[in-house]
């Protein structure tokens, strides 16, 4: 189950990345290589094994429903490439 050129293009689209023709070829080559190796996980017998969810076995860690206001909008917006009226500005989205 080798990854195809079309799949590389599709994956790049999902990830919002742009690949030049040359990069597509290179990525295809490297991904085949890496996925071939990654596939070795399928050699491990995992019958009756549950998949891990995260690194710990803990569960039910919740927060109390109590308000703590951050209260500093300016600092939250201070890294914005473009802002207007206290909001992040982007090209028009319909």
């Amino acid at each position: 189950m080798d990854i195809s050129r079309e799949e590389i293009i599709h994956i790049a689209k999902l990830a919002n990345l742009k690949l030049t023709e040359a990069e597509i070829e290179k990525t295809l080559f490297n991904m085949k290589d890496i996925l071939n190796f990654a596939n070795t996980v399928n050699k491990v017998n995992t019958d009756n094994v549950y998949e891990s969810i995260g690194a710990t076995q803990n569960y039910n860690v919740f927060r109390k429903d109590e308000i703590k206001e951050f209260g500093d909008r300016d600092i939250l917006l201070s890294n914005a490439p473009e802002q207007e009226d206290g909001m992040f500005k982007i090209p028009k989205v319909i």
Binding site: M1, L35, A38, N39, V41, N42, V44, T46, V49, Y50, E51, S52, I53
Partner: peptide, 15 residues
């Protein structure tokens, strides 16, 4: 299933 889910199972095996 073939990659991520399987890897999470192998993770259990490693543990």
């Amino acid at each position: 299933d073939a990659y991520y889910k399987k890897a999470q199972k192998v993770r259990t095996v490693v543990k």
